[in-house]
Design a protein around this nucleic acid. Structure first.
Length: 892
DNA sequence: AATATCACTTAGAATTCTATAG
DNA sequence: CTATAGAATTCTAAGTGATATT
């Protein structure tokens, strides 16, 4: 059983000397020397800074010694019983957020599909980590998991990809009549001037014009016909449609100064959550077995926890402590708890609290809601929709635009990810008095709820938010902004991808520069070059400094010494918690100079010290800006993701079914997701579902065998002629005789249920038709079929033959059926395999944020695949600009 | 220069909807 | 038709990076 679970609940880390809540950690003096000498590099070899453990061949993992583990590791939970976690079903295991050592690895795995790579899988540190390791062969990573030969292939491929990138860059510059020289000054100037074109490159405009002309024309036709068809549907009809169609900003060439986001803005403010409704009197939490009567405010907070009893959060000590602390505070403020006789009860011990009555009440409520008829549900929904209606849209510069999160976040318990020190704290109800409204000067200010007023009303035209408040747990600002489908968001999305495409034009120079600077004498330069290398090759995030009161996670610039392990000759193991406390685990063969540098940066530091102690994200970004205005570390992620996608998509051959194309696209998508380390938790009952799916396929194989056995029945000579053909598929051969009996029982059982259900239904019908109920006799009559089945199975098991049900059944027809069955089996098996492979990989994030949507449009056009195979409704809305401006010729 | 503030994008989990296998 | 699995959507936390402040 995974011991990684044990890492979840940790004691709250005390914050020394009441530093200001938001202060970022004070950067200590750099420990690394300012200049690097040859001697220092030489000396590295004499120092014991490398892990010498392990034979070279192995993926054997070096266990970092305890002193270099992050603090987080060494802080052991005060109370922790090992056994409690082992009760958690496999499938509910939490992802390993705790940077477990390899040795803590779960040896038992989530029921794997047959094809699991043996040794490698067994050694994996955790399911999460596995993903990182299992990087697809196409991922631009040099993963040491692979055989030396495969590694070489990979390396070669990576080189190819970069070569291609360099060629592209040169081509771009050549097109601009620029020298292809190294002097970046020239390039920089050009890029900068180019950047003044706010949207697409000027050259593209003409091309786009032509394209969009087409679509516009089409639309006009459609609209006209729609109007004609509707006839007298309404006079404002045409106008309405114009409204809904939205603003095709990508067809305009208007330049904005990039500062002003709007000139007029009207909206209806925000929607507050409904007020708290008290629980029925009989629903009470218990304290030491005694039902408590709580004041309204305290009851609400208790309910927040009570509703979560099945969540993983309640197993987290920090979460419980934080909740309980805040609960007690509210309880005291609101007057305290009473027992059944009205006596005061002093609540002090979390462990004496029992929230199950509340939990059960909420569950019952939910079930009740579930039981409503379809119509009732519809009515309820309509009611809700009517309430939301006023907030759905705003009017920005006269245009109707969709608003995103117009609902004020309801109170609840803060669900911080990973080891967030504040997780579980009470998120208080937001009052109108805390909300600032941003709206046009001319516009009518939305009325605050009766008896309340807004904190303030502002008219900031340089921002896009409509309303704002500060949340109480982390003092973070929450904004109400437009939806992703809005033109404002669309434009900035477009700009993001255009910036990444601009990077194409300079990326080769940047790469040459940092490769050279890997050997620079200056520590600052060398650290910067090394960080650039990691950001570029591994798509690491920038890694801004973080505060004391946040989860302890890192990105590139904030990597700690303990996050990397080095093994000669040039293997680096990255193991750290990144954004959202998602583990990044990767073993990579790096450029030898990078390896040397990392050794140098680690030298004479503690595990908790910063690896890159002389650079910051700001200094790194400042440097990047000198190549290209607006170039920052995050652009590399976008660039590498989209570029990788383009390369992967280009590999997909023409021809084949739509199904094949879809699968191939998803595979390309997966490559990108792995590159970006996008992971997801395995759904609670994944293993169970998987097993069911596998059993279903086995069942199909048996059905296939039965078809063959029909042939055996019709033409017994064949069995002699080709005995192998009549054997069960190899996949079910093992213990077939035992299995098949079990399976047959199951089939009979299923049939029995079916008959029962049918009987009951028929009975209901009889009753509603005013006829007498069916007799028990009738049921028994029907159940006789089961006996028949049983007999047939017995006979089949003896003879290996099945009598066809229908007379007119030719061998040819049966063979046809077998073929169909084979296809069905193959498809189901493929799907199961993919499902298992992707169980921990989140494809959505890269599709939504990193892969230029025009690539998907290009792919669909080129291969004639409907776009909705990849973009669901909301994405099609969000990427409307891409859908209407790209065709099969688009190149990132 | 450090750091605080602000605005915005990116992210996985949780919830709701829906398609389809049974 | 209905239960369920998976897809889609919603929610809000957690990043990045620009700019203001000290």
């Amino acid at each position: 059983m995974s011991s990684s679970d044990d890492d979840v609940p940790l004691a709250i880390r005390g914050r020394p000397n009441g530093s200001s809540p938001k202060s970022k950690k004070a950067s200590p003096k750099p420990k690394s020397p300012e200049r690097i000498t040859k001697a220092m590099e030489k000396r590295l070899d004499d120092e014991m800074d490398l892990d010498t453990a392990g034979d070279t061949g192995g993926i054997g993992i070096t266990v970092t010694n305890t002193s270099t583990r992050p603090k987080r590791k060494s802080t052991k939970p005060a109370v922790k019983n090992e056994s409690s976690d082992s009760d958690v079903p496999l499938t509910k295991r939490r992802k390993p957020n705790g940077t477990p050592l390899k040795s803590e690895t779960d040896s038992d795995d989530d029921v794997p599909l047959a094809s699991r790579r043996g040794a490698a899988a067994a050694k994996k540190p955790s399911p999460k980590a596995e993903k990182a390791e299992e990087s697809d062969s196409d991922a631009p990573l040099l993963t040491s998991k692979l055989s030396p030969a495969a590694m070489k292939m990979l390396q070669k491929e990576k080189v190819e990809v970069e070569k291609k990138a360099a060629e592209t860059a040169k081509a771009i510059r050549a097109e601009k009549n620029l020298p292809t020289g190294k002097r970046k000054l020239d390039v920089r100037k050009e890029e900068e001037s180019d950047d003044d074109v706010p949207l697409a490159g000027r050259k593209k405009v003409a091309q786009k014009k032509a394209k969009t002309g087409k679509t516009t024309a089409k639309k006009v036709v459609k609209k006209a016909s729609a109007r004609a068809g509707k006839g007298k549907a309404g006079k404002g009809d045409g106008e309405e449609e114009e409204e809904e169609a939205g603003y095709a900003w990508w067809q305009e060439q208007t330049e904005s100064d990039g500062k002003t986001k709007w000139t007029t803005l009207e909206h209806n403010g925000v929607m507050f959550p409904p007020p708290y409704q008290r629980l029925p009197r009989h629903v009470k939490m218990r304290y030491d077995g005694v039902p408590l009567t709580l004041p309204e405010a305290a009851e609400e907070v208790a309910g927040f926890f009570g509703a979560m009893l099945t969540s993983e959060h309640v197993k987290n000590k920090v979460f419980c402590d934080n909740f309980f602390g805040d609960f007690l505070e509210v309880l005291e403020e609101s007057g305290g708890a009473q027992g059944p006789d009205g006596q005061d009860v002093d609540v002090t011990d979390f462990n004496k609290c029992d929230f199950t009555p509340m939990f059960e009440y909420f569950e019952a409520k939910r079930e009740e809601r579930n039981q409503l008829t379809v119509q009732q549900k519809k009515d309820l929904k309509a009611e809700r929709d009517a309430l939301e209606e006023p907030y759905l849209y705003c009017r920005l510069d006269g245009r109707k635009e969709k608003v995103g999160n117009f609902k004020v976040e309801p109170p609840g318990l803060f669900r911080g990810r990973g080891e967030h020190p504040k997780t579980g704290k009470l998120k208080k109800r937001v009052m109108p008095e805390q909300v600032t409204i941003n709206i046009g000067e001319e516009a009518k200010v939305p009325a605050p709820p009766p008896g309340h007023k807004w904190k303030s009303v502002v008219h900031k035209q340089d921002v896009t938010w409509l309303a704002m408040w500060t949340e109480n747990v982390n003092d973070n600002v929450k904004y109400v902004m437009l939806a992703a489908t809005s033109s404002l968001k669309g434009q900035s999305d477009f700009k993001k991808f255009e910036k990444a495409r601009e990077l194409k034009g300079v990326v080769d120079i940047i790469r040459k520069d940092y490769e050279r600077e890997l050997r620079d004498k200056s520590m600052v330069v060398r650290q910067r070059a090394t960080a650039m290398y990691l950001i570029d090759k591994l798509a690491l995030r920038a890694g801004n400094a973080k505060g004391e009161e946040e989860a302890d996670t890192v990105g590139c610039c904030s990597l700690k010494v303990s996050n990397i392990t080095l093994r000669k000759p040039n293997l680096v193991t990255f193991d750290f918690l990144g954004k959202d406390s998602i583990r990044y685990y990767n073993e990579v063969a790096v450029d030898p100079q990078v390896f040397t540098n990392l050794r140098l940066f680690k030298a004479r530091k503690d595990g908790a010290d910063e690896l890159f102690d002389r650079i910051t994200t700001q200094s790194l970004n400042k440097h990047l800006t000198s190549y290209l205005k607006g170039l920052t570390a995050k652009v590399f992620r976008t660039y590498n993701a989209s570029w990788t996608m383009q390369i992967e998509l280009a590999k997909i051959p023409a021809g084949g079914s739509v199904h094949d194309k879809v699968a191939a696209y998803h595979l390309a998508n997966k490559t990108v997701a792995v590159l970006c380390n996008h992971q997801r938790g395995v759904p609670a009952n994944f293993a169970q579902n998987m097993q069911r799916a596998i059993d279903r396929v086995k069942g199909l194989r048996y059905q296939k065998l039965r078809l063959k056995r029909q042939i055996a029945y019709l033409d017994p000579k064949r069995v002699k002629k080709m005995p192998d053909y009549f054997k069960p598929d190899p996949e079910i051969q093992e213990d077939f005789d035992t299995w098949v009996v079990e399976h047959q029982k199951l089939l009979i059982e299923q049939e029995r249920e079916k008959i029962h259900r049918k009987f009951e239904k028929d009975n209901e019908k009889q009753v509603s038709d005013g006829k007498p109920e069916l007799k028990e006799k009738e049921l028994n009559e029907r159940l006789k079929a089961l006996k028949e089945m049983e007999k047939e199975f017995e006979k089949e098991n003896k003879t290996g033959k099945v009598e066809p049900k229908t007379r007119s059944c030719s061998i040819e027809k049966i063979e046809e059926q077998i073929k169909k069955m084979d296809e069905k089996i193959k498809k189901a098996e493929m799907e199961n395999h993919v499902k298992d492979e992707n169980k921990t990989i989140a494809l959505g994030t890269s599709k939504l944020n990193y892969i230029d949507p025009r690539l998907t449009v290009m792919f669909c056009n080129k291969h004639n695949v409907p776009l909705d195979k990849f973009f669901p409704k909301t994405m099609r809305d969000k990427f409307k600009w891409a859908i209407e401006s790209a065709d099969e010729t688009f190149e990132f």
